[in-house]
């Protein structure tokens, strides 16, 4: 792992191996919340924030688990930590920024079952990232997720005005669009491997 600099990890998780378009993590919110640009942006930011928090928690937790040789509890403890992190974010947001809390509504608790968050925690453990590397990884993943959501919502807002055949309306068309976006993101493939 010679080229695992912080910038490379960030770039890799943001665009080269984009969480949504290349690794298929977090497809549910990607298809569900990408109808409008505004909600897509708030959802992306909230998810990024939870990613950052749960990445830090998962790093600390893993140290404890490895110390006591209890790696088999990894999955259960990670998901518990993520669920409580989401709960904390929800409570903090309700207290300090009620407007944003109302804007996000139901999407906030649903971040718990977003596989991008748990996937992030599992990947950083699997790849033995250091603390700084984990932070870069989480930041990159958040940026990548927000980017994918924004791109998709922009396209779908345009599509509302387009005249598409009846059969292609709804999810089928969104998936085709996502496929094309994913093809475009494959263009980042060689980046960073100079």
């Amino acid at each position: 792992m010679h080229n695992e600099s912080l910038t490379f990890i960030f770039l890799q998780s943001a665009v080269i191996n984009n969480f949504v378009l290349a690794m298929f993590l977090g497809i549910c919110p990607f298809l569900g919340v990408s109808g409008r640009v505004n909600t897509a942006l708030s959802m992306g930011l909230a998810t990024s924030f939870v990613m950052l928090i749960s990445s830090i928690c998962a790093f600390g937790l893993n140290l404890i688990l490895v110390h006591y040789h209890m790696e088999f509890l990894q999955l259960i403890s990670y998901i518990a930590v993520i669920a409580s992190a989401v709960q904390l974010v929800e409570m903090a947001m309700k207290k300090f920024s009620p407007a944003l809390f109302r804007a996000l509504g139901i999407y906030l608790p649903l971040i718990t079952t977003n596989c991008a968050v748990l996937g992030l925690a599992l990947f950083q453990t699997m790849r033995h990232y250091s603390f700084a590397q984990s932070l870069a990884f989480a930041l990159g993943a958040g940026v990548g997720f927000t980017l994918a959501l924004l791109l998709m919502s922009g396209l779908r807002e345009r599509l509302l005005l387009a005249n598409v055949p009846n059969v292609a309306q709804g999810a089928a068309l969104s998936l085709m669009l996502a496929g094309i976006l994913s093809l475009a993101f494959m263009g980042f493939g060689g980046l960073g491997s100079l």
Binding site: N166, V167, L173, A178
Partner: peptide
């Protein structure tokens, strides 16, 4: 090759959904 790469997943699922929508209609 693209069918086993990530974009292929989106395209094939989209295709199946199109087929089912068409049948339903």
């Amino acid at each position: 090759l693209v069918m086993v790469l990530p974009p292929g997943g989106f395209f094939v699922l989209g295709g199946w959904l199109l087929l089912f929508n068409w049948l339903k209609q």
